[in-house]
Write a protein that binds this DNA or RNA. Structure first.
Lengths: 412, 412
DNA sequence: ACACGTTAAATCACGGCCTGAAGAAAGCCC
DNA sequence: GGGCTTTCTTCAGGCCGTGATTTAACGTGT
């Protein structure tokens, strides 16, 4: 149980590189001095490791800061243009491919609507690959500088054996009718870049954790409230994946056993009570033919205008949502809950107080007291950013391991 | 995020010791040869580390086995009598203290009923300390050979800062009315032994994972079904604790928002539908004045005899239980669910098929397909065993670190 | 200008670690 | 007794992080 495999003396160096690289990446320009303080490494080791990273071009000096009277500190940072990342969002209505630099600044993006052919997997793969080619071409980016492609998909992702170059990645989705689609193999046929695939809600949560309302929390749950409902659980600073990477499927938690029919085929799911699709449908007064987003906006406007049925519907949704959040608090004991997703951001300002109250009423006192409930800061566009964090995470975790094809071209 | 702190070259040795010790502990007598194979360490290192452990008396040779034609393998094992462990169960009706050897064989136990003074914390602490003295005296065990005392309590345990010798341990329990009881400090006043405290349901789950139906699983949830309902979540082979160690409070998951009133004060909790206390109360036909256990047995007998209301009540309980297990499957994506606890073991044989069906009906297809649902193998007595695994786990994890007072007396 | 104090970074000997190869040990078979 | 096989031990070699020492780079005061 929990035996971490064999460790050679070399893994220490990888660990040190990783620690330093992560600190520099997340905590901005830092001197060797400060790096030693916060990482616990000795000054000698910091110098040594930073020297290596400098030689690899993974770190660069950027100015200095005087230190009253003594030698000035040299600031170090991870050069944002040292490498690139690709994030893909396979959404309900479109496939979006974005190219980022190492600092996750978006350099280019490509959108392809998904109206005609639906979610036929061959079509989606084709769109991903064309999008990838487009963003690379538009920016004149050498594919050799891309650390990897992260893809957020709707559905459950089976990661397969690691080390098989992503070939084992398989996607299951009851909602878009993907049954064991071998996305890894299919994408691999069109690109040599390292592939990372995860659920889109999870990647959005990842983005919120890194750059949004989740920053700094080590134990958090990002509750994603959109057309459906999902969650991304972070424990000890890393995604909680479970045995086959599908942990956090919150939308089909039973809040009312034997209750409303859900699109998953079961009854009483949270999603059937608070999902945007369900809300709009239950309200039944959205302008015919309008989008789900417009429908929800109309519902919200009606409630703001004081229309009784809209007010009640939203109040009920807040109660169910809060109760389900209470379940998350009881089960995961997070220090923070972040409510994200487009519907969450739209309804959040109105519902947050009621959600907090419901969570307090339904959760156990002690874990509830340890938890704050806040709105997310990132819009749904952040799915691509989150997807791009997948290869980025691998990069940082491995201590700055570059694909073989890139290591020669240390541009600094 | 997820930066594991600084590692010195010495931590490697600790890791190796820990790995080897764990393998030997769990996988019985093994030769250096086999140890090298399964741990990934080189033969040289194994010899080296085992030499250390032998010198510390943490490992002993135990016979040899011929190896067709070559030098025979020398088998190694962890000597069960090298040290002792204490497990304490602070239950609903009694305080039970048990002394174990390193192999978790029970050497002595002491029970004290908790009828008169209820759960007054001073009284409980007193009983624990007398029980501890009793088992040590009865077996003539030198306290210096005790690795630590593990305590399972009803309620939520706040671990406090590690390294403070357990002084920060505080217990909260809405059911037995403990509000921030500083159990660590209180016990520390009466003993110098290392202290470990956790929720009793969690320790029972721990026992089930180590020696019961959970053996070998790296991701599992032990669902504990007794008077109340709880869960112990194991991820990556270790307990999932969350931010403040209270993760896994499953009994108050909302299965029916706004439904039955629960003893926690909230409505619609799982426990209010399937907890033994709730079932017996709802049935309403248990012999007056009988214990909860007897009441549940009577309910079961009535159902076996075909009495309609009993049959229906149990069928409903199975459905709710299965639905709540479906939530666990969706949220934690375990490879195994173990149903334990005294009520679980009592009703399990009858309800398991229905629970499995309900879980299948309510959970998402993919994660459900990855999970097996089985009955636990250990009775509720295992709480003490589970509690004793707390110090044992520390011992194995640290690579066989002995309290200072013991290391001199390497008896071999 | 110039020495002095101060702070930051680089260097280096040291003790530890794991590996891998070579050697020693312990049994069997002929 | 001489091979042969298999297991275990020993040891050189390459790395690693530490901590002390040295060097670098800057203010300040004279």
């Amino acid at each position: 149980m929990a035996e971490r495999g064999k460790q050679t003396v070399r893994d220490l160096r990888r660990g040190s590189r990783s620690t330093l690289l992560q600190r520099l990446y997340f905590e901005g320009p830092l001197s060797r001095q400060e790096l030693g303080q916060i990482s616990g490494l000795s000054a000698g080791s910091v110098s040594n490791v930073i020297g290596e990273l400098l030689a690899d071009g993974l770190v660069e000096e950027c100015g200095s800061v005087e230190s009253d009277g003594g030698r000035p500190r040299i600031l170090l940072q991870v050069p944002p243009d040292r490498a690139h990342l690709v994030g893909v969002d396979v959404g309900e209505t479109q496939v979006r491919v974005a190219l980022f630099d190492l600092g996750l600044t978006e350099l280019a993006a490509s959108d392809h609507p998904l109206s005609d052919c639906g979610h036929d997997s061959d079509h989606v793969v084709e769109l991903i690959l064309t999008g990838l080619a487009e963003v690379l071409h538009a920016t004149g980016t050498d594919p050799a500088t891309v650390l990897g492609v992260g893809v957020g998909v709707p559905g459950i992702v089976e990661q397969g054996d690691p080390g098989t170059d992503g070939l084992g990645i398989v996607v299951h989705s009851q909602t878009v009718d993907w049954d064991a689609v071998p996305l890894g193999r299919m994408l691999r046929a069109g690109t040599d870049l390292p592939l990372y695939v995860d659920n889109g809600a999870k990647t959005l949560g990842q983005a919120e954790m890194w750059f949004g309302a989740g920053r700094g929390a080590r134990h958090a749950v990002v509750a994603l409230f959109g057309s459906g409902v999902g969650a991304c659980v972070i424990a000890e600073g890393a995604r909680f994946r479970g045995a086959t990477s599908s942990a956090g499927e919150w939308g089909h938690t039973k809040v009312h056993v034997g209750g409303r029919l859900c699109r998953c085929g079961s009854r009483g799911c949270l999603e059937a009570y608070v999902g945007a699709e369900a809300l709009v449908e239950r309200w039944g007064r959205a302008p015919a033919g309008s989008s789900e987003k417009a429908g929800l906006a109309a519902l919200l406007a009606a409630a703001e205008a004081g229309e009784q049925d809209a007010v009640e519907l939203l109040a009920e949704a807040a109660e169910y949502f809060g109760a389900a959040i209470a379940d998350l608090i009881n089960l995961f004991n997070p220090e923070r809950i972040v409510i994200g997703g487009w519907a969450g951001l739209m309804l959040g300002p109105r519902l947050l107080p009621a959600i907090r109250d419901a969570a307090t009423a339904y959760a156990l006192r002690f874990p509830r007291a340890q938890t704050s409930i806040d709105l997310g800061l990132l819009g749904p566009d952040a799915v691509t950013v989150g997807a791009a964090t997948l290869p980025l995470w691998h990069f940082l975790q491995s201590g700055g391991e570059l694909p073989a094809r890139m290591s020669a071209a240390a541009t600094g």
